[in-house]
Design a protein around this nucleic acid. Structure first.
Length: 288
DNA sequence: CACGCGTGGGG
DNA sequence: TCCCCAAGCGT
């Protein structure tokens, strides 16, 4: 396996986007919040809401002092609002178990609500400079192509972390840059739809390119159909309740035009279970 | 391990 | 237009 780190580091120095969480001194809490928001939500939509979030809650303790409902409301339209509840819960855990300081150990980060393999290592590496493999979907795609010679990665698997570890230089700072560079390359150059090999710093070393871009068959899990799904129904319920801020609505009036009432009711029930909808005297409202 | 979970932008 | 995609996580 040729050395990918050296060209990646040089490329990253010249081509990395100037993103808020990469600013010197952005802080571990800011990095952690950004990572929560970036879970399945594009960068461009995260940036303005991240700034607003950190202005309102500059520390985990500040967030923990407000009710979870405040976090859900501030989450606005980022999608997957359960993440707002998880982030709030993580803030409480940081206050109660870590004296209000975002932990730097991967194991401690993994124990927080809403933090998994990716986010734990992203915080440890990008906020604290520790040396670990950080593997997201971009990184997995770049490894699939450059190293394994396949057009797309399979589903996340054990072994992903080991594969990335093999690419990391010894030096902690260089390792952090290579982690970031793999993600950045996947986001900007070696994307899911296209591979811009003409501007890729490792095209000469790429196994997929060398093999003539074989289409290995796409093993990625397909996103479930959204049209007609329970998720869509939940989205419609939330949309209706957001449109009626502060006052509760009779349950029958919420998304009343939804084509299948049973599905609408199921969506409401699941949102109540998740803590994203409240029942007050038989009326529904967003938690407050 | 495969599935459920929002919302919106771009090719 | 419509479909695909987007720094995952919990169960």
């Amino acid at each position: 396996m040729p050395d990918l780190a050296t060209p990646l580091i040089a490329w990253y120095r010249d081509n990395a986007r100037d993103l808020p969480w990469r600013a010197e001194g952005f802080g571990a809490w800011g990095v952690l919040v950004s990572e929560f928001m970036l879970q399945q939500t594009p960068v461009a939509r995260v940036i303005p809401l991240l700034e607003a979030w950190l202005t309102r809650w500059p520390t985990p303790t500040a967030l923990a002092a407000d009710p979870p409902a405040a976090a859900v409301a501030q989450w606005a339209n980022l999608g997957y609002p359960r993440r707002a509840l998880w982030l709030h819960r993580a803030a409480v855990e940081i206050r109660d178990r870590h004296d209000g300081v975002v932990p730097r150990e991967v194991e401690a980060l993994l124990a927080l609500t809403g933090i998994g393999d990716y986010t734990a290592r992203a915080v440890a590496v990008f906020a604290y400079g520790e040396r670990h493999p950080v593997v997201d979907t971009n990184t997995r795609r770049v490894i699939a192509r450059a190293v394994d010679g396949r057009s797309q990665p399979g589903p996340p698997a054990r072994g992903d972390l080991a594969a990335m570890t093999a690419l990391l230089p010894r030096d902690d700072q260089d390792a952090a840059i290579v982690n970031a560079a793999m993600m950045e390359l996947g986001a900007l150059v070696c994307t899911a739809r296209a591979a811009r090999c003409d501007v890729c710093p490792i095209s000469a070393l790429c196994a997929w390119r060398a093999a003539g871009y074989p289409d290995t068959g796409d093993l990625r899990r397909k996103q479930a159909a959204y049209e007609g799904s329970d998720r869509q129904a939940r989205g419609a319920v939330l949309h209706a309740l957001r449109a009626a801020p502060s006052h509760a609505l009779p349950a029958d009036d919420v998304a009343a035009d939804w084509p299948t009432p049973a599905q609408r009711d199921r969506a409401i029930d699941s949102l109540i279970v998740d803590g994203l909808v409240e029942v007050v005297d038989g009326n529904l409202r967003l938690p407050q």
